[in-house]
Design a protein around this nucleic acid. Structure first.
Lengths: 362, 362
DNA sequence: TTGTATGCGTTATCAC
DNA sequence: GTGATAACGCATACAA
């Protein structure tokens, strides 16, 4: 019997109000092996004899031993934590994204440290904490400035932008998983234009949403290509209320309802829709077509059945997790962009076929 | 000039593919002070002279030094992380809860390590990880068995149950923040009964939801007290589809529509409502009253304007964060239960006034 | 107020 | 395969 020296002082005393934690030394002592043997038993690919492994595991179970991740990460430089930075969880779109990301990351052995930004200004404090917590990498679905992104590089912390574009300068130097907003938006405009809509309106998302901005730009471009009048554009903030407000503002500006209104996300589209139907008595899609983005769950409810565009969330989350895991394992420096296409959901809030030509006579 | 001994070997070499991290020793060297002085500068209440503080901070800024939370937590036994265990993030109710909890915890200097359980069975793996990560405490909004709760006690990890009740045995030995489901449910039944509804139906939540079970029980009790017939009860799983299915099942079982149907949450109520109105052509609230629970955002949308009960989420989240923070700071062993009342939201999907007595003649 | 010395609990390196 | 020993980066008791 060898005595283990390392834990020289017996736990200060039993009177400590918090029991001393069980460490690998305790297990080693109980199993009659060295501490390093215990350590090896908890490392997947290590070389341990079957016999010692069994004895160690028995002792560990007996003592309720659990390895301390903080100590481990100190030496391995891996915390097995990934920070997920999200700009506003109450946005109906994010919970699904977060849920998928979390599940995919678990498959790579990573847990999510959550940073939910109530205001965009909170990003600085969030990043300060991110550095402290020694996360292995970051998935950001929030607006990051070039300066922020630069800090990731300096600190060698892998970053994947999720559904958020970096600035044009940074675009090709930062890893990202995106949905092709331009293509989706152009597709939507084309379908609506083909059905004969001429006067469009756009209820844009807030200024810090890169996706909304791309959608708006692409829509404007496509309208110009088709020789249609420029759309009325108003700004919302992605919530229900601002959809309704947006519709009213558009009507005020235009003097009448437009033919079609494209909203920066589904919740605004639903706000717009409810306002049209229940407050203004406008027939949708008879006199007004309404479309959204994201295909969040309520968009599919019978009362709405919204015309919208679905992003392949599961694939995107899986791609983000894979990309980040690769970045972490192989300090790759070559940035990658994975772009996914959106799926058009016809719904029933937009007229998608041309009207029969009306006879001129009354 | 004293030389700092502790970092004896110069960083192995500059060729390492990952730059060596900046430590407090580096800052100490640059500032011409000891490592412990640097440490003190980053501890709020420590005693440091203004002068050294300034020099240390200057050096730290120069070198981009950030304290390593893993190393810190190893010695302080505080990770400043709180695990939040949530049973299913895609449940519309949880994102709001998580968002509030996250914000409240940040106010206490804690960050959220997220455990999102896709299946209830994942709780074991989640807890195994919880122990490893050395979180300071746990907020659980998921079903925990007595055995699970016992493990928290053995490991001295503070636990607050959020909107989930423990078993009757454990009820008074575990900290919890709750909404009075019984009272809310009785209030709802009373209001509906007073308006003349006689035949009730209940679309219950899944078996693992303690809140749903309490609501159902209380509703049944109150109906019995009022001398009304027992309700038809069917089981759903908290999603839109199961609300619609629930209504159909109730009608099949009863041979007709009930007077009032109470759903285990808002999303099921909305599913029920849409099914009644758009599929079955039942007038709500004319011939059928529908009520939900939680007052999630869509319940307030014009197309629904649901009769429901709101839980004071912000207060509850604040209470949970406070409670947990106290538990962490003062190893208090006395369990506490904070129960909040729900607020009745009248909405427009339930008839809340008695019908005028009908003349008997046709 | 400041510096020295020590330990937190683990993994990694190296002889054996 | 196994055990000593040295980090990992920081906070703390204690001496100065």
């Amino acid at each position: 019997m060898k005595k283990a020296k390392p834990p020289p002082s017996p736990p200060t005393s039993a009177t400590a109000h918090e029991a001393r934690r069980v460490t690998s030394y305790d297990v080693a002592l109980a199993a009659g092996v060295s501490q390093s043997a215990v350590s090896r038993c908890f490392k997947p690919g290590a070389s341990v004899s079957k016999e010692t492994y069994a004895r160690v595991m028995a002792a560990a179970a007996e003592l309720d031993y659990i390895p301390n991740a903080a100590a481990r990460s100190l030496i391995t430089r891996r915390s097995n934590m990934v920070a997920v930075i999200i700009s506003n969880l109450t946005n109906l779109y994010y919970p699904e994204a977060l849920s998928e990301l979390s599940q995919q990351l678990v498959r790579h052995g990573k847990r999510v440290l959550l940073f939910n930004l109530a205001r965009e200004a909170d990003v600085d404090q969030a990043l300060a904490d991110v550095w402290q917590y020694q996360v292995d990498g970051v998935i950001a679905s929030a607006g990051l400035s070039d300066a922020h992104i630069g800090e990731f590089e300096r600190r060698h912390v892998p970053l994947v932008m999720f559904n958020r574009a970096a600035s044009d300068q940074r675009m090709h130097s930062v890893n990202s998983v995106l949905c092709d907003q331009r293509d989706a938006s152009r597709m939507l405009v084309s379908r609506l234009a083909a059905a004969g809509h001429r006067q469009f309106a756009i209820v844009d998302g807030p200024a810090d949403s890169s996706a909304s901005a791309e959608r708006r730009q692409a829509a404007c471009e496509r309208l110009a290509e088709l020789g249609l009048p420029p759309p009325v554009v108003v700004t919302g903030n992605h919530d229900y209320r601002s959809g309704a407000d947006g519709l009213r503002a558009v009507i005020a500006q235009l003097g009448r309802a437009p033919d079609a209104i494209i909203c920066g996300n589904d919740v605004m589209a639903i706000g717009c829709l409810d306002c049209a139907r229940h407050e203004l008595g406008i027939d949708v899609p008879g006199r007004l077509s309404v479309a959204g983005f994201d295909a969040v769950e309520p968009s599919n409810w019978l009362s709405y059945n919204l015309t919208t565009l679905r992003q392949p969330m599961q694939k995107m989350a899986a791609a983000a997790a894979d990309l980040l895991a690769n970045l972490i394992d192989s300090h790759d420096t070559q940035a990658e962009r994975r772009v996914f296409g959106a799926q058009f959901i016809a719904g029933a809030t937009a007229r998608l076929v041309a009207l029969k030509p009306q006879p001129l006579a009354a």
